[in-house]
Design a protein around this nucleic acid. Structure first.
Length: 976
DNA sequence: ACAGAAGCTTA
DNA sequence: GTAAGCTTCTGTT
């Protein structure tokens, strides 16, 4: 390097953050990979390389390098452990872009410089010194004030986003001091973002004034007594040490032992094909064209580069579950082959997986926290790392009843602690139950917990967070921001894993068998409740939960980006957690009297039928026992047609009994009736009152977010998604679900949502038109198939078409349709054939789905949710056919599930914005139930319908309108 | 005390 | 033909 040369140094790390926030979101069209910062970076670099002379810099670079931070830990952390401790985790959309920008740098044939233990700023300072010593000039591409201390006659800065050069006059103008005094100025003012203390009460204006007066920091500190203003004087005298440590922190190192020297940064002509290949892979059309033109590259002849952002997971066979060893091996291979390619999502995945499993899980290493100061220290540590895994231990599996017994935290793999709060002495002791000595004062501990849980700069990680959210909320604690490892696993492996519980995830990803809850608290009769577990035992169990959760997060979270599933997690899963937590907490009113009266009526009717049955068969058997019943009906009484179940028992299914009844037999009808009544009684009228919460007087169901393969929710304890509706008897149970005084229940349900989704994804003109016109879809189908006009169509014809429409959604088979319609299989087959002739698009859609599922091992919903079918390539034809039907159904059911999830996530803000107090209580797959104040019903219904009908927007726009029917009434039966 | 089968409820 | 959860019975532990 020599006089006249000009070195450009891009602060790559700084640029990424600034561009990410300043530029509008941008996602790669083909898969949604976030790329806004990458595009900003490429545009900027391209412009500076080509025509820097035309910018405010006004010179052409001869040397060019991009400098990055190596990691967040540097020598400054040793000087001052709190350094940059306030930094929160980077946004989700940004993480994959770190690696991409390093790729971009290489695609531009530019050196990519970073060094362990040093920040990018130190490298920049060092290279500036080297350039100056060589008599050359340098321009730092950054507007960060931390770099302004480097500005000199030979060194200036350039803000690429404002096209503004920053020289000595600009620094003086902005800060009131020349560049060489910037260090002292920063030492006084500090920096809240980097957590540099500075002197409290001294801002840039005061600092500049003081430096003007005293010349420099040392003089100022030595002669601080001369300061006139009392407050200012005291603060400076008192905080002189903070000022000195701050100065050390902000002073950039100009003597980093760098490996490359500025001579290595000689700017060479762009490698057109290489650059075009990268830009094509990023799908930056305009820039690709521009670069191709300028470098004389034939863009059409260049293939998009293989940028290692891991895509479809087809690496291992469909029937094989990767063992932990295999998973680690796979990760290891990736790390080895991509080491010099930069921090790609896959590399990040591999590195994180390695870190999470590197240290063995040792449950005896966890700490029990028994004093407040230790808890504070742990929480401070969480603030430093920015991520903490936590878990609550309670007295009950039901979060609405659970009392907090303790909680655990993990700040990094292997480092976890348990905080016992409510452990009791002497289990089994009659007078026992006094608190165990040496536990923290609950109030103070909860205040500390709240400080951590609500801190915006610390990401809280939990496994099945909704449970903890409900418990925490009952203790007045909100949790945000957060991640849920169970949901991440669900998004990654929906359909591919048996479950997403912590025990299974730990074994799969960490190769570690967790302590079972039952081993700690006992099971069944020996269950003692967590509050009676000894604290050392509880520490091992709870500490492990937090430790494992943190490790799982480290392994799983990067995989989302690597597989392009970030938006599914962020848009369809994570935001739903607090929405469901609130719905569960609200509960729904159930009228005990109505249920008790119904129960009595059902008991009477059932008893009467029971007597008649005994009369007919001549003995008092257990009618509820299919075994005894079968032996009587088909053995002793010799009724015809009895088929056997797979265990060799006589089948006594309702379908079969109905058939027998149709042939004129008296007994089967009575058995069917008896079963219906006893079912209603045992499952609903008898069981529901037991779920009424003693304090709230309402029923609080539990929604599972990660239980179904398709993305639907499930409801349990009690299941409020299968409350009867089909029969008049059953519907009576719904009359017991009532609104609060002065309120109504509003039920809003999507009309034919899955058929509409089918019309959209399979792109069927006749169906789309029918939905657009609001026509009777089953009648239209029948009319198309049988050539019968819709007017005056026999109901049987419409019924058959309806069965076929539903059959399609279920992945139709002649066998199933024949069963449904009670017709021969040949006839059903002929219907299906005819249907496909009239709607060839549906046959194409079904075939395309099967082919896709076979090739990739999964299908995707319209919103990108992946549903795996690992057995779709099974050699067993019936297993294969089952998986094919399921995968056809999954795209439709899953898309519908995604749509209502989106509606639920938006519902509360929409209602709040409309200043309505309606409360969402229940979800039943295509229906939402609200409790609405009497006076607001009219205003609320249109808001609900609008949110539901526009739920796919703006992510997707369906080619078929969605229709929602909503009604208000005093109880669920009338509202539905 | 628990697990699986059968049967029934919903969308 | 798809997706769920709960109750009862039955056999095993």
């Amino acid at each position: 390097m020599k006089k006249g040369d000009h070195l450009f140094l891009v602060d790559g790390s700084g640029y990424i953050f600034r561009a990410y926030h300043a530029l509008p979101p941008l996602n790669r069209k083909s898969d949604g990979l976030p790329t806004n910062a990458v595009l900003g970076f490429c545009n900027m670099v391209w412009k500076l390389m080509r025509d820097a002379r035309d910018t405010d810099v006004g010179v052409t670079p001869t040397h060019f390098a991009v400098i990055f931070d190596y990691s967040s830990k540097t020598f400054r952390n040793d000087l001052y452990p709190e350094y940059k401790a306030n930094r929160s985790a980077p946004p989700e959309d940004l993480i994959p872009q770190f690696g991409l920008i390093r790729h971009a740098t290489r695609a531009f044939s530019l050196p990519c410089v970073e060094m362990e233990g040093y920040e990018a700023d130190d490298l920049i300072a060092t290279y500036c010194r080297m350039a100056e010593e060589a008599g050359a000039d340098a321009t730092i591409i950054s507007s960060d004030k931390d770099l302004m201390q480097l500005v000199s006659p030979a060194v200036s800065m350039y803000d690429p986003m404002k096209d503004r050069q920053i020289g000595i006059p600009e620094v003086v103008e902005k800060w009131g001091v020349p560049p060489e005094k910037m260090i002292d100025l920063q030492a006084l003012t500090g920096d809240s973002i980097d957590n540099i203390p500075g002197v409290p009460g001294i801002g840039p204006k005061t600092a500049a004034q003081l430096l003007e007066q005293f010349g420099n920091l040392d003089t100022l500190l030595a002669r601080a007594e001369e300061i006139k203003q009392q407050k200012r004087r005291e603060s400076i005298v008192e905080n002189a040490d903070k000022a000195r440590i701050s100065r050390e922190l902000v002073t950039l190192r100009r003597d980093v032992p760098v490996k490359e020297v500025p001579d290595d940064f000689l700017l060479e002509p762009s490698d057109g094909p290489r650059l075009v290949a990268f830009l094509k892979a990023m799908e930056f059309t305009t820039l690709t064209r521009r670069v191709a033109e300028a470098t004389g590259t034939d863009a059409g002849a260049i293939e998009a580069a293989e940028v290692p952002v891991e895509r479809a997971d087809t690496a291992h066979g469909p029937d094989m579950e990767a063992t932990p060893a295999e998973a680690a091996d796979e990760a290891g291979t990736e790390a080895a082959t991509m080491k010099d390619e930069g921090d790609t999502p896959s590399l990040l995945s591999a590195l994180r997986a390695e870190a999470a499993t590197a240290e063995k899980i040792d449950v005896d290493a966890y700490q029990t926290i028994t004093d407040l100061q230790t808890l504070k220290d742990w929480i401070d540590e969480a603030f430093e790392t920015g991520v903490v895994a936590f878990d609550t231990e309670t007295t009950s599996l039901d979060p609405m009843q659970a009392e907090l017994v303790g909680f655990s935290l993990a700040t990094r793999p292997g480092r976890a602690a348990y905080v016992p709060l409510g452990h009791k002495e002497g289990a089994g002791d009659l007078l026992g139950g006094g608190p165990v000595e040496g536990q923290l004062p609950v109030r103070e501990a909860l205040a500390e917990l709240k400080r951590l849980m609500e801190a915006p700069s610390v990401l809280k990680v939990a496994q099945n967070l909704k449970y903890d959210l409900v418990v925490m909320s009952r203790y007045g604690i909100d949790v945000a921001p957060y991640d849920d490892t169970m949901l991440i696993s669900y998004v990654l492996d929906g359909g591919a894993a048996r479950g997403h519980g912590m025990d299974a995830l730990s074994e799969k990803w960490l190769g570690h068998k967790t302590i079972q809850f039952g081993e700690v608290a006992g099971t069944g009769k020996s269950f003692i409740g967590f509050e009676n577990v000894a604290i050392d035992k509880a520490t091992r169990y709870a500490g492990e939960d937090a430790d494992v959760t943190l490790r799982l997060w480290q392994v799983l979270k990067p995989r989302l980006a690597a597989k392009g599933l970030v938006s599914v997690y962020e848009r369809l899963e994570r935001p739903l957690v607090p929405v469901l937590a609130r719905m569960e907490q609200r509960g729904v009113s159930v009228d005990r009297q109505i249920l008790s009266r119904l129960s009595g009526e059902l008991a009477q009717s059932a008893a009467a039928i029971e007597e008649e049955i005994y009369g007919l068969i001549g003995e008092r058997i257990n009618i509820g026992s299919p075994k005894q019943l079968g032996e009587i009906l088909f053995g002793r009484m010799g009724l015809p047609g009895g088929s056997k179940t797979k265990t060799g028992q006589w089948s006594t299914s309702a379908q079969l009994l109905e058939d027998l009844a149709a042939e004129g037999h008296e007994l089967p009808r009575k058995i069917v009736d008896w079963r219906q009544l006893t079912k209603l009684k045992s499952t609903y009228t008898d069981a529901l009152p037991g779920f009424i919460h003693p304090d709230t007087g309402r029923v609080h169901t539990s929604y599972a977010l990660a239980a179904t393969t398709t993305g639907r929710l499930s409801s349990s304890d009690p299941n409020l998604q299968n409350i009867p509706v089909r029969t008049a008897e059953g519907r009576k149970i719904r009359t017991a679900f009532i609104a609060d005084k002065g309120h109504r229940l509003v039920s809003a349900d999507y009309s034919q949502i899955e058929l509409r989704v089918l019309a959209h994804v399979a792109d069927i003109p006749q169906l789309k038109q029918a939905f657009a016109e609001g026509a009777d879809i089953h009648a239209i189908t029948a009319s198309e198939m049988f050539g019968v006009p819709v007017e005056g169509m026999p109901s049987e014809v419409r019924r058959r078409a309806k069965a076929i429409n539903f059959g399609i959604i279920y992945g139709i088979s002649a066998f199933g349709l024949a069963n449904q319609l009670s017709i021969p299989r040949e006839e059903a087959g002929a219907y299906i054939k005819k249907y496909f002739e009239r709607f060839p698009g549906i046959r194409d859609y079904i075939e395309a789905t099967k082919t896709y599922a076979r090739e990739f091992g999964y299908v995707e919903t319209v919103f990108g949710r992946r549903i795996h079918y690992p057995e779709i390539r099974s050699p067993n034809p019936s297993v294969r056919a089952f998986n094919e039907r399921a995968s056809i159904n999954a795209r439709l059911q899953g898309t519908a599930a995604d749509i209502i999830r989106r509606a639920m996530i938006r519902m509360e803000p929409a209602l709040a914005q409309a200043r309505l107090s309606a409360r969402m209580l229940l979800q039943v797959h295509d229906e939402l139930i609200f409790e609405v104040a009497d006076g607001e019903v009219e205003a609320t219904i249109p808001v609900i319908c609008e949110v539901m009908e526009s739920a796919p927007m703006p992510a997707r726009s369906l080619s078929v309108p969605l229709k929602v029917d909503a009604r208000a009434a005093h109880n669920w039966d009338e509202a539905h």
